[in-house]
């Protein structure tokens, strides 16, 4: 087969993207865990570990640029590398959302949070991360069909977000002393909601690599339900 070295270099980059995906997934799960447990120490550690996510992203970006400059990729290859440049940006942003949740853990400190809310936040994270995992699998497998289907699941994340939003609004209206805390919880929910939007962007790039088609994917069969 021609271009074995080049293909090996592309595979290395793809492997690193998957490593970045795992780092980000771990960060989101742990961030939410710090919020549940109010673990200030862990929150600070994860907050600082975001640096590693950023470094990994820059390292992959640098690898892509080197390959573009030295190997002159064409057609599917250039689409693949262009997609990776976009995907790692999305992953890094998801890492930033995890970092944001850790910041909220630090701000909220010991204040009580309704366990129902915590559960709903966990559901949002689980749904978003499941979408992310399957999106990265679809990227590896060049599975366009799955990449088109995943964004449709964003509606579930939006529903959970709307539910949390309504609950917090009610709390704030009933007791104005909760405004500050409720706002922060809402911000954590917003971060998780944005995470699944980023997954949709990743899916768009998967479709682009496979088909050359560059357009937004539908996130629902009807109109817009999100508050974003």
């Amino acid at each position: 087969m021609a271009r074995e070295t080049f293909e090996r270099q592309m595979q290395t980059i793809l492997d690193q993207v998957l490593v970045l995906g795992s780092m980000v997934e771990q960060a989101v799960l742990e961030a939410l865990d710090t919020l549940k447990r109010r673990d200030q120490t862990a929150a600070r550690r994860i907050y600082e570990a975001d640096l590693h996510i950023n470094e990994k992203r820059y390292s992959i970006e640098s690898g892509c640029i080197t390959l573009i400059a030295t190997q002159q990729p064409m057609a599917r290859d250039v689409r693949f590398l262009a997609a990776i440049l976009e995907i790692i940006t999305e992953l890094e942003r998801i890492g930033d959302y995890a970092k944001g949740i850790c910041k909220i853990t630090q701000i909220i400190s010991e204040e009580a949070i309704d366990p129902v809310l915590i559960d709903e936040l966990q559901q949002m994270a689980d749904q978003g991360l499941d979408m992310l995992r399957r999106a990265l699998d679809a990227f590896v497998a060049s599975d366009v069909e799955t990449a088109r289907e995943i964004p449709l699941e964003d509606a579930r994340v939006d529903d959970l977000y709307n539910q949390i939003y309504r609950q917090l609004m009610e709390e704030m209206m009933a007791d104005i002393t909760t405004i500050d805390r409720a706002n922060h919880i809402m911000w954590a929910a917003h971060n998780l909601e944005r995470m699944s939007d980023r997954v949709t962007n990743i899916c768009e790039r998967i479709v682009y690599v496979a088909t050359g088609e560059m357009k937004e994917l539908d996130t629902e069969e009807g109109g817009n339900t999100g508050l974003n």
């Binding site: 021609a2 271009r3 057609a75 599917r76």
Partner: peptide, 18 residues
């Protein structure tokens, strides 16, 4: 032709796989 060729043979040629 260089970003999204329609033909598989073109794709293989421009990507250096044949």
């Amino acid at each position: 032709i260089f970003t999204n060729p329609k033909n598989k043979q073109t794709e293989d040629y421009v990507t250096g796989r044949f």
